[in-house]
């Protein structure tokens, strides 16, 4: 905790972001700051736009044809849609972990080394040390250190997801986006991921989408509640869960709908 800045600045910031799939508006005028080295949880019912918002932070929505946006997203004050921004560089700085663990059909080692290799790292010793560091960081090293050459597909679901986190961490991004990273896992594996998030926030800025209220309450410093494509409320997690300003937020976090 001591490593964290007392008054964190905004690492990323959306200003009046509007995002459309074709004619359908998925996100409407969302302004939200993702604070440096804090965990920000994005909650809300299905289809409320929280995942879409998360994916817009490293421009993964660019891959879906027909998406258009208005408004700005800043990373350290720089507009990520600026002409001069290389989306490849952006994604190296803003990494992502997906809902469904998606390891490549390669060895455990090659999975973690992937981002480094595509970035041009060739030195074997350097690769090996970065892979070890990332696997340790994702609390997976002890379980896989003797079988780095085996297929990643042989790992359990929870291990695969931690491998995906290790893979994202290997390129040393500044921000980690997590899209329901534990939704397909059992409680024990989920607990491990949550523990990991706690450790990671000393070094990374994290934004996490979750459907699980308790999880949001456990892991996050700040919580943003999305509803029907709009940001209803954002504030310190404790306040959102105990003393929300908005009625809709209260209804949602107390389980009246959603």
């Amino acid at each position: 905790m001591s490593l964290q800045p007392q008054n964190p600045r905004a690492k990323m910031e959306a200003r009046e972001l509007i995002l459309r799939y074709g004619a359908k508006t998925a996100i409407h005028k969302v302004s939200l700051a993702i604070l440096d080295r804090r965990v920000t949880a994005l909650i809300g019912p299905s289809g409320c736009g929280k995942s879409t918002f998360l994916r817009s932070l490293n421009r993964m929505n660019d891959l879906i044809s027909g998406t258009t946006h208005a408004g700005t997203i800043l990373l350290d004050g720089m507009d990520i849609h600026d002409r001069g921004v290389d989306v490849v560089d952006l994604r190296r700085r803003v990494g992502m972990v997906f809902q469904k663990s998606n390891p490549f059909p390669k060895s455990i080692f090659e999975n973690v080394a992937y981002g480094l290799r595509v970035g041009g790292m060739k030195d074997k010793a350097e690769l090996a040390s970065r892979v070890e560091k990332s696997l340790r960081g994702a609390a997976l090293w002890d379980e896989v250190k003797d079988r780095l050459d085996e297929s990643a597909l042989g790992l359990s679901g929870g291990q695969q997801q931690r491998l995906c986190i290790a893979r994202a961490m290997a390129v040393e991004p500044e921000v980690l986006l997590m899209d329901e990273p534990a939704s397909a896992l059992d409680p024990i594996a989920t607990a491990k991921i949550e523990e990991l998030i706690h450790e990671l926030k000393a070094t990374y800025t994290i934004a996490i989408v979750t459907h699980n209220m308790q999880q949001a309450a456990r892991v996050s410093d700040r919580t943003a509640f999305f509803y029907m494509g709009e940001l209803v409320e954002c504030g310190p997690t404790e306040q959102i869960f105990t003393n929300p300003r908005e009625k809709r937020t209260e209804d949602y976090v107390t389980g009246k709908f959603g």
Binding site: V88, R91, G95, F98, N102, Y114, G115, V118, A168, V171
Partner: peptide, 14 residues
């Protein structure tokens, strides 16, 4: 699988 493509792109691959 699309997930493998997105995983690769999200890691900063061209």
């Amino acid at each position: 699988p699309l997930e493998q493509r997105t995983a690769s792109l999200a890691l900063g691959a061209t």
